[in-house]
């Protein structure tokens, strides 16, 4: 039982988070950027759940892992970049540049996925993932700063919890899984615990949101 939880705990928590955040999306009165963020966040969980399903079905195939890792990494960058563009009110006026930036950011992900596959080594994707996480961490901090400075903070309370969770998630992943961390921490299982801690935070924040929302509406 304990082995099962250690192995599939994060998978189960992803499903629980998907259900909880879907309920927020359906029941809550979300507006503009907040609605968009929650919608993208639900897709974030959905991709991971599909990824995990295929990993189990394919018996942990490295090829399946690399394909989904690339999709997931590009989606993360797309998510954070889209929110930054919306917050800066630049999504419509700079549409071409927005597409160019996403394409530029996708280059190292696709390159590392191809090199990992051809060289039969995880080294390229480990390297690419490290730089992606730093970039996503900077992006999440920027979004969080903008949300805090927003005139109507209460309208974006869900986005605040999502991106504060992302700061925690990317911060712990930098510590847990990559080159700058102490040698002993460079392991997939430590990165999994980092994900688990963030998932607990996101799941717990659902109750805070519900409490804050219900207090404000009464």
């Amino acid at each position: 039982m304990l082995n099962f939880l250690l192995e599939y705990g994060t998978t189960i928590f992803h499903i629980l988070n998907l259900i909880a955040w879907y309920l927020i999306y359906r029941k809550g009165r979300l507006l503009n950027i907040n609605r968009l963020t929650v919608k993208y966040f639900i897709f974030f969980f959905l991709i991971v759940i599909v990824w995990n399903f295929f990993m189990i079905v394919s018996n942990r195939s490295p090829v399946v892992y690399i394909i989904f890792w690339a999709i997931f990494s590009i989606y993360e960058l797309y998510f954070v970049l889209t929110v930054i563009f919306y917050l800066a009110k630049a999504r419509k006026n700079y549409a071409e540049l927005y597409i160019i930036i996403i394409s530029i950011l996708a280059i190292p992900i696709i390159l590392s996925a191809l090199l990992s596959y051809t060289n039969r080594s995880y080294s390229p994707i480990n390297t690419s993932d490290f730089y992606n996480i730093i970039l996503l961490m900077i992006g999440s901090i920027l979004v969080l700063k903008s949300i805090i400075n927003y005139p109507s903070f209460m309208d974006n309370i869900e986005s605040f919890f999502i991106f504060s969770g992302f700061v925690l998630y990317f911060g712990l992943h930098i510590l847990a899984s990559n080159a700058l961390s102490i040698d002993i921490l460079k392991n997939f299982n430590f990165a999994k615990y980092a994900t688990f801690i963030s998932l607990i935070y996101w799941f717990g924040s659902v109750f805070f949101i519900w409490k804050i929302r219900s207090k404000h509406s009464s």
């Binding site: 990824w51 995990n52 892992y65 890792w69 080594s121 995880y122 993932d129 997939f188 990165a191 999994k192």
Partner: peptide
């Protein structure tokens, strides 16, 4: 990425086997 994929040292070989990227279910080593 290019530098790490061209490195043919033993250390690069061993670290290349270990996946440390994001994900819930660890893939099998190549």
């Amino acid at each position: 990425i290019i530098k790490s994929s061209q490195d043919e040292s033993f250390q690069a070989f061993t670290t290349g086997i270990e996946c440390r990227a994001q994900g819930d279910i660890m893939p099998e080593p190549f």
